[in-house]
Amino acid sequence: MKLTLHVWRQKNAQDRGRMFRYEVPGVNEHMSFLEMLDVLNERLIEKGEDPIAFDHDCREGICGMCGMMINGKAHGGFKGTTVCQLHMRHFKDGDELYLEPWRAAAFPVIKDLAVNRSSFDRIIAAGGFISVPTGSAPDGNAIPVRKLDADLAMDAAACIGCGACVAACPNSAAALFVGAKISHLAHLPQGQPERDRRALAMIRQMNREGFANCSNIGECEAACPKEIKLEVIAQSNADYIKAAFTERPETAIGGAG
């Protein structure tokens, strides 16, 4: 099949950037979306042009590296699918596709479709540590975890940090990502000692990075390739509100050392 692509081309972070049009004939329906871009890039290199930069790594839908907007939908808008797992059989001959990078002040473009998501790393880092004994491995079932909590924690932990939630959100909010990270540990006994501190620190860091608020509209949930639910945002809101109202200076008298 033959496709027409309109691709955001931007030389570097300082460049203004603009959309470029590419004709891509000979696209095989068995290709993944990224393989189709690989083919286009090979052709661009043969012509002596600069290939299109895009993020990718595992190409198995589990690393969270890839991602771009296809016709205004994060990862192309197919349920539970990262762009590397998106196959060309979903498109038809003559389709016109607009490819754009994730758009957020907190995700500056590095080049073309590749964005810098270090803001996510800083939010994770702000979350800090959990108190677990190091040394010999503890017995697997030493700490009982309710089945429901284990399920909810694992569902939240499925977040791969790709940034599709931010890209799909009209507010460029990172609430789903932060919610997933806060919920994940909030449901586990290992996450309890630092639970309040973690919620406060991650939400504050999220705001410092320039992500806006959640307005509960649900575009993120639909775009998430790991199908994280809006429920995680409510959980992180609850944790944040509780923590904010119980936060107090450390006591200097007595205490536990």
Partner: peptide, 19 residues
Amino acid sequence: LQRAARPIPYVKKSNTHST
């Protein structure tokens, strides 16, 4: 905050699941 969070708008943006 929202205005500042996305200084460059999308050329194409489709909102599919929100009311």
